[in-house]
Simulated assay, not measured.
Amino acid sequence: MDRSLQNTHAKLMSRDIHRLRPSPTEANCFSLGGISWVSRVETVGTIVSRDMTPNFLKFSVDDGTGCVTCIMWLNQLTSRYFNRLDQSTILLYSRAARKQAAEVRIGAVARVRGRVGLYRGVMQITATVVVTERDPNAEILHWLECVRLGRSCYRIRS
């Protein structure tokens, strides 16, 4: 198994994220074109939905090839997962997540990085970084990079 993309954010379009297939042997790993395995992805698109609760922000990103659902957890202060970290680190994570969540607005173009996974049978990104793009060319440049990487590295056929 080629693990070269496992600890890297693979730049993918929504269409390709939804084409990922779970590994039969590796937890939280997905097959990309039958050659490489990914667990983290990066995508760029327009935010088309937004639902915020005290514990998480759920939003969808549309890049023209489809929509992918993203979730950003905001419960760092109360989550058992973060209990193993010191309080100042937890506070730092919490502030960063809330600041990024505030920038997620419908109609904005955003770059999303995070872990990819299946939730109720559909691919989803658990976002760790969400950045609002100010460059009007960011989305098309991402598309071009995805096509180039798909052909040369990921071996994705269009």
Rank of each mutant, 00 (worst) to 15 (best):
R80M: 11
R148I: 10
F82E: 07
V129L: 06
A110N: 00
V112H: 05
V109D: 03
C70P: 08
I71V: 15
R80F: 09
A108I: 00
L92Q: 08
F82T: 14
H142P: 02
V116C: 09
W143V: 06
I106C: 04
R105A: 13
L144I: 06
L144A: 08
L144D: 05
T69N: 08
A108E: 07
T128A: 13
Y81D: 12
M72A: 09
V116A: 07
E103L: 13
V109M: 01
D86Y: 06
F59L: 04
K58L: 04
G150L: 12
A127V: 08
A108F: 02
Y119H: 15
S88T: 13
Q76R: 11
I71P: 00
D135K: 02
L85F: 15
A127G: 05
V147F: 15
T69S: 11
Q100P: 06
L77N: 13
E133G: 02
G117D: 02
A97P: 09
C146N: 08
G107R: 04
R134H: 14
G114L: 07
G64P: 05
T69Y: 01
G114H: 07
W73E: 07
V122L: 05
S60A: 15
L92N: 08
L92C: 10
N137I: 06
Q87V: 06
R111K: 15
G107Q: 05
L141D: 06
R113I: 10
R113F: 10
V112W: 06
Y119M: 13
G107H: 01
S88F: 03
I71M: 10
L91T: 09
T128I: 14
Y81T: 12
G117Y: 00
Q100N: 11
T78V: 12
L85R: 02
V104D: 01
V116W: 02
G150P: 10
A138Q: 07
E139I: 12
V61H: 00
G117T: 02
R148P: 00
V104A: 04
D135W: 03
A108W: 03
E145Q: 13
F82Y: 14
G66I: 08
S88D: 12
V129M: 01
V130R: 00
A96V: 15
M72C: 11
S94Y: 12
V61G: 07
C146S: 09
V109Q: 01
C70I: 14
L141T: 04
N75K: 09
T89K: 03
A101L: 00
L77E: 14
T132S: 03
Q124P: 02
M72N: 07
